[in-house]
């Protein structure tokens, strides 16, 4: 007991108390309170009718067609985005790991998309994709790839992929840096030993580079999956879930339910489902890939 509550422990507790109090107020309490709210049918515009509904807000999700549409859209968006981010950032990190003239300039340019705020990025892509005056149509038209301006975001078959493209453009720099760190950490004597054993470029890549990059891959995979599943900004600014329900992802579904319909109970329940899915996926990745690293 004396060791537990000695002078140092007490001092530490006193000094940490203000920070802990703030964290309790701005993080822990809202998390617990929103969980509590998820058991009530709370609609701000009906302040006098907030019945306790137990698990109904959670169970209702499974019978809601639009919820399943949003799950399907989220899965498509996440798989396409994360796969593209992994592939492109691998190629770019391999390129930047080479010694060539202009490497530093290229590295700096690469950081530009990362430095642009999400909302600015979304607005930029809105202009690029615009079917009337967008840069994409302008370039394709001038290069004679199209003979008339195309509909981009308004074409439901393209919408989710175009938004994924804007997301990938923003996320690739960070993923590249993370992979580059893994690449730089590979000891050069491993390559020398492989060369001595007669391994060619491809064999060195497969047997030395890729295995050594697994921690980096795992980090990028987990981080980008979490970012993709929860992503909201691009959907809000580019399409507002449309056209039809073509970009109605989970985060958009939660936003509409919570802040447009002002249904805080069901919105909170959806948020917990999303958090749980994100956590389960991350845990699965860590368990399955972590063992092999």
């Amino acid at each position: 007991m004396r060791r537990l509550f000695g002078y140092e422990e007490r001092s530490a507790a006193i000094f940490l108390a203000p920070v802990l109090a703030v964290l309790m107020g701005v993080a822990v309490f809202p998390i617990l309170y929103s969980f509590y709210l998820s058991f009530f049918r709370i609609k701000l515009t009906r302040p006098n009718r907030t019945p306790f509904v137990g698990l109904d807000n959670y169970l209702d999700l499974f019978t809601n067609d639009l919820f399943w549409v949003s799950v399907a859209r989220t899965v498509t968006f996440s798989v396409v985005s994360v796969a593209a981010i992994l592939a492109i950032s691998l190629l770019v990190s391999l390129l930047l790991n080479q010694n060539f003239r202009g490497r530093r300039v290229l590295s700096t340019i690469l950081l530009v998309p990362w430095a642009i705020p999400y909302v600015a990025n979304a607005l930029m892509w809105k202009w690029i994709y615009d079917s009337g005056y967008g840069a994409l149509n302008g370039i394709l038209y001038q290069l004679d790839f199209i003979d008339k301006y195309m509909v981009w975001l308004g074409d439901q078959d393209k919408t989710i992929f175009l938004i994924a493209n804007a997301f990938v453009w923003k996320e690739v720099p960070l993923a590249t840096i993370l992979l580059l760190v893994s690449l730089k950490a590979i000891p050069s004597d491993l390559y020398q030993a492989a060369r001595v054993d007669g391994a060619g470029v491809w064999q060195r890549f497969i047997h030395v580079t890729l295995p050594a990059m697994k921690p980096g891959f795992m980090l990028v995979l987990i981080y980008e999956t979490m970012m993709a599943i929860r992503h909201f900004d691009l959907f809000f600014i580019l399409t507002e879930g449309g056209p039809g329900n073509a970009s109605h992802v989970l985060s958009w579904h939660i936003y509409v339910e919570t802040f447009r319909n002002l249904s805080f109970g069901s919105g909170a329940a959806m948020s917990y489902v999303l958090a749980l899915v994100t956590f389960a996926l991350s845990y699965t990745f860590i368990r399955s890939l972590g063992r092999k690293v």
């Binding site: 079917s131 009337g132 509909v151 981009w152 975001l153 308004g154 399409t239 449309g242 056209p243």
Partner: peptide, 11 residues
């Protein structure tokens, strides 16, 4: 235009 579904009032 088929793009009407992505055209807001201001655009």
């Amino acid at each position: 235009s088929p793009a009407c579904v992505e055209t807001g009032e201001l655009s």
